[in-house]
Design a protein around this nucleic acid. Structure first.
Length: 306
RNA sequence: GGUCGAGUAGCUCAGUCGGCAGAGCACACGCCUGAAAAGCGUGGGGUCACCGGAUCGACGCCGGUCUCGACCA
């Protein structure tokens, strides 16, 4: 008897947390694992739509509040934390329900990703060289060291070019020799469901949710974060970045809110695009009530894969 | 009512001397290996407010109409 972890994934505001709570309400052995790159930060609650304390008291949640908002956090850190959480749940005889919005983080759990290490010295040197020589020059060098990786990225994509060169120079191995890459989908012991909305409806939900966050005190949360240090990654989170700009006097509150809504909508599309490539995901189409629509499907999966 | 200004992509606006209609944003599509709510790429979109005129040729010049704004009465 296997108890394959269930995955409920979808774009922001798709209702996956509500669905997961409803499912957990019917199964006392369910434990939720948040697969979300921003909910790992402490002191960032409202803007990350983190599960409420009431929900967290009612059902065990994992992978929330793993690091302070001033701390650095990476995919590798997440993969380690999530694997540990899954092991713990299995030991207790529970069943994991992953609630996933961050595609890369989910892949780091469902797939055997071999993420290369870091070479800070090499990296620092490359960061300087980018400014002096330009990205294209670094891309040409990457082409000599690792033609496969170089051909798979735009010569103008500084982030990817620098990272691939960092790994190639630091490790002495081609970047492309680390694992199969995210475009390979192997069979995985996870049963994955995606919540899919018509875009106009999801856009409405996003706008409503952003306004609810503002009414719920998001500005105060950001002001409080603004008092002390905050990591680069946490600072650019949707809803935070724009309010930091507002607090700096760069725009009005209304303009900041509109920007948050637009960017969140764009983010939701990016999430869709990431997830929809994965042939292992079964999609549940929703146009009104996520819980009513998705719960029966998940219930049936819960039974069948037990 | 008069004067002046404006009207070009969904939005904000460029468009030189009359010679193939442009940008940013938005939108669509694709990519993504220690920052991923990040980063990068590709693309579709036009009755140049409307009607007429002169010209080989008009978004542009001429006449008229409409709409918006400012100012004057």
């Amino acid at each position: 008897m296997t108890t394959a972890p269930l995955v409920i994934l979808g774009p922001t505001a798709s209702g996956k947390s509500d669905v997961a709570m409803a499912l957990a309400g019917r199964h006392g052995d369910a434990e939720l694992v948040a697969v979300d790159a921003m909910q790992v930060y402490r002191r960032m609650h409202i803007g990350t739509a983190k599960p409420s304390t009431a929900d967290r008291a009612a059902v065990p949640h994992h992978c929330l509040d793993l690091v302070d908002a001033a701390g650095e956090f990476t995919v590798t850190d997440f993969a380690a934390a999530a694997r540990q959480a899954l092991a713990g749940i299995a030991d207790r005889g529970g069943r994991a329900v992953l609630v996933a919005g961050t595609g890369l983080y989910l892949r780091s759990v469902t797939d055997p990703m071999e993420v290369p290490g870091r070479w800070p010295g090499v990296r620092a040197e490359l960061d300087v060289r980018v400014g002096v020589e330009g990205v294209e020059a670094l891309h040409r060098q990457l082409g000599g060291l690792d033609p496969v990786a170089a051909s798979k990225m735009e010569p103008t994509n500084t982030r990817r070019v620098v990272r691939a060169l960092e790994v190639a120079l630091g490790s002495g191995r081609p970047f492309s020799s680390f694992g199969p890459g995210v475009d390979t989908y192997l069979p995985a012991p996870f049963v994955q469901f995606g919540l899919r909305w018509p875009r106009p409806l999801l856009a409405e939900r996003i706008a409503e949710r952003v306004r609810r966050m503002i009414d719920g005190g998001l500005v105060a949360e950001v002001i409080s974060l603004n008092q002390g240090p905050i990591s680069r990654t946490a600072r650019q989170a949707l809803g935070y970045k724009e309010l930091f700009d507002f607090l700096d006097g760069a725009c009005t509150l209304d303009a900041a809110i509109e920007t948050i809504i637009t960017r969140t909508r764009q983010f939701a599309v990016r999430q869709e695009r990431w997830f929809r490539r994965d042939p292992r995901i079964r999609w549940i189409d929703i146009d009104n009530d996520p819980v009513a629509t998705a719960l029966p499907v998940l219930e049936s999966a819960w039974q069948n894969s037990n």
